[in-house]
Simulated scan of single mutants.
Amino acid sequence: PHHLFEQDDWQDTLIQLYSFSKAYRLTGHRVGAVTACQTRLAEIEKFLDTVTICPSQLGQKAALWGLQNLGDWLAQERHEILARRQAIIDHFPTLAAKGWRLLGLGAYFAYLEHPFDVDATDLAQKLVEEAAVLALPGSMFVPAGDHNGRSHMRIAFANISAEMIVVLFDRMAQVSQ
Rank of each mutant, 00 (worst) to 15 (best):
Y108P: 00
A156Q: 10
R85G: 00
S19G: 15
W100P: 09
L123K: 00
H152N: 11
T94I: 15
A110H: 00
W73M: 07
K22R: 12
A83C: 04
N159C: 02
R84N: 11
A33P: 09
H91R: 13
Y111N: 02
A158R: 13
A36P: 02
A120T: 01
A158C: 11
S139M: 08
A96P: 11
R85D: 01
I53F: 10
S56R: 09
D122P: 01
Y24K: 11
D117H: 07
W65Y: 15
I44F: 08
I53Y: 09
F92L: 07
L67K: 12
W65R: 15
K61V: 03
A87P: 08
Q38N: 13
E80T: 01
L134I: 07
R85T: 04
L134T: 06
A62K: 15
K98S: 08
L26T: 06
P55D: 03
Q57W: 03
A75S: 13
A83Q: 13
W65E: 15
A158H: 14
N148H: 13
E45Q: 14
D122T: 04
A97P: 07
N159E: 05
I89M: 06
E45D: 15
L67F: 15
Y24G: 06
A158N: 14
G71M: 04
F20M: 10
E43R: 13
R85N: 05
I44S: 08
G59H: 12
R84M: 07
A97N: 13
D146E: 14
W65G: 10
V118K: 08
L103Q: 07
S19T: 13
P115D: 03
D72N: 11
A144K: 06
R150P: 04
G66Q: 11
P137K: 10
T39R: 15
A110G: 02
V51F: 12
V142N: 03
C37M: 04
A132N: 07
H29W: 12
I53V: 09
Q60M: 14
K126V: 06
V31R: 13
G32A: 12
N159D: 06
H91S: 09
I155H: 05
